[in-house]
Amino acid sequence: MRAIRPGHVASRAATFVILAIAALAIAAPFLWIFRGAFSGSDAELYRLPPTLQAKNLTTANFGLVTEQVPYFRFFLNSIIVSGSITIAQLITCSTAGYAFARLRFRGKSALFAVVIGSLMIPIQVTIVPLFLVMSKIGLTNTLWALIFPGIFSAFGIFLLRQHFLTLPLELEEAAKIDGAGRLRTFAGIILPLSGPSIATLGIICFTYWWNDLLLPLVMISDTDRQTLPVGLVLLAGRFSTGSLGTIAAGITMAIIPVLVVFVFAQRYIVQSIASSGLKL
């Protein structure tokens, strides 16, 4: 152990002060909105400094949220859309990633170049024709219009291909000698070894589509078919002033389930997102 120098103590103290300020800056807005959800009036919501005295607080706002907008419907729609895209992406990206990592076929490099090139054309660029395609096949204003555009993912294919390349070839050779076909090798040997990478893609994909605002705003016109991010904006638009606590309650109801999942799955989420940089 090295001797403790005064400069060392000072720099350690500074480190913790900076980290604590940063963590507080992240936590405070959430704590503020959670408390605001229990406020009975606009004045109470904006009371500074905020108080936690029980006599000023109410739970009525949460009931008002579900009265004003089909809140649980938004929630369900969001789960259906993000969940379906995630499942579909895991299937399409893992099979395609495997083909690019392990199979030898004509046109492979050209096809792979196309996949990588498409990374540079985000959905924001193609949103207009995408809307026209959806409206021509009659899918606008349905959840399908939110699911289909999310399924193909160049990022996902690339991520999983990079992972498959790291698996030892011998495993597959052995399976081949045993007479296993490509599909059986893939499903029986490759996939079971790829849990963490598949989880990474799943988490990144789910988070992205859970949070998306643009696509539902463009594709969906019925309130009942909206997802949560648009639902919150609709709720906020419905009360500009007068019952701001209700908006705070709606935001709180959107965040708490995410917080619960996050706390339980944190190890996985933290690791997944951290490793996405290393894998590319």
Partner: peptide, 27 residues
């Protein structure tokens, strides 16, 4: 491998053609 690749890539190719390439040409 060609046949296997076709099978493995078909889901991605279809979704790519309809929801990425077509809209890109569309733009």
């Amino acid at each position: 491998d060609g046949l296997a690749a076709l099978a493995f890539l078909t889901p991605s190719i279809i979704t790519f053609l309809v929801f990425v390439l077509a809209p890109t040409v569309g733009v």
